[in-house]
Computed example of a mutant assay.
Amino acid sequence: MTEISKTIAEWKELLTPIEFDVMRNAGTERPWTGELLEENREGVYCCKACGAELFHSDTKFDAGCGWPSFYDPADSDAVTTDIDYRLGYARVEVRCAKCGSHLGHVFPDAPQTPTGQRYCMNSVALTFTPKNAD
């Protein structure tokens, strides 16, 4: 996969202030505020910064956490993970493999899913394209 590299100024030009804070500064949108939380149509979720395909709607589930949640990425190399200690304890951060944008975190607390994983994503880091969109 070809990696995308931009300067801070280029990212600020491309993203809104909240998108920049979340995707480039590893911020978090407030729970229950994301426009994609209640999205239930069939389709594809992509990185808002670069358009890379990240998740399919058939892996989305209601985790009750206030953020869109998925149990598996669209492809095994769609995202990368790293340990994040920003809150003083270890969490697994999820980034777009193509542009390095922060998307959210993954937690091993979803036994009701096929993978047991909860990819807890920020809505502002994603775009959604319905399956039959032209």
Rank of each mutant, 00 (worst) to 15 (best):
M1N: 05
T2I: 14
E3L: 13
I4M: 08
S5D: 05
K6Q: 11
T7G: 11
I8S: 07
W11P: 01
K12A: 12
E13P: 05
E13V: 06
E13G: 15
L14W: 07
L15V: 01
T16I: 14
E19D: 05
E19Y: 00
D21Q: 15
D21M: 13
V22G: 03
R24D: 05
R24V: 06
T28V: 04
E29R: 00
P31M: 08
T33E: 04
L36C: 12
R41C: 04
R41H: 12
E42L: 09
E42T: 15
G43W: 10
Y45C: 02
K48F: 02
K48G: 00
A49N: 08
E53L: 12
F55V: 04
H56Q: 15
D58Y: 11
K60H: 11
F61M: 03
A63D: 04
A63N: 10
G64C: 11
G64A: 13
C65P: 06
C65M: 09
G66W: 01
P68Q: 01
P68E: 00
S69Y: 00
D72M: 06
S76F: 05
S76N: 11
D77I: 03
A78F: 01
V79S: 00
T80L: 06
T81W: 00
I83F: 01
I83N: 10
I83Q: 13
Y85I: 15
R86D: 12
L87W: 12
Y89G: 11
Y89H: 14
R91W: 00
V92E: 14
V94P: 03
V94I: 14
V94L: 02
C96I: 10
A97S: 07
G100P: 07
G100V: 02
S101I: 10
S101D: 06
H102K: 05
G104C: 02
G104N: 06
V106M: 11
D109P: 09
D109I: 09
A110T: 01
P111F: 05
P114I: 10
P114Y: 07
T115I: 09
T115A: 10
G116M: 01
G116S: 06
Q117S: 08
Y119L: 04
V124P: 10
V124E: 02
A125S: 09
T129K: 12
P130I: 07
N132D: 15
N132L: 15
A133I: 05
A133N: 14
D134P: 13
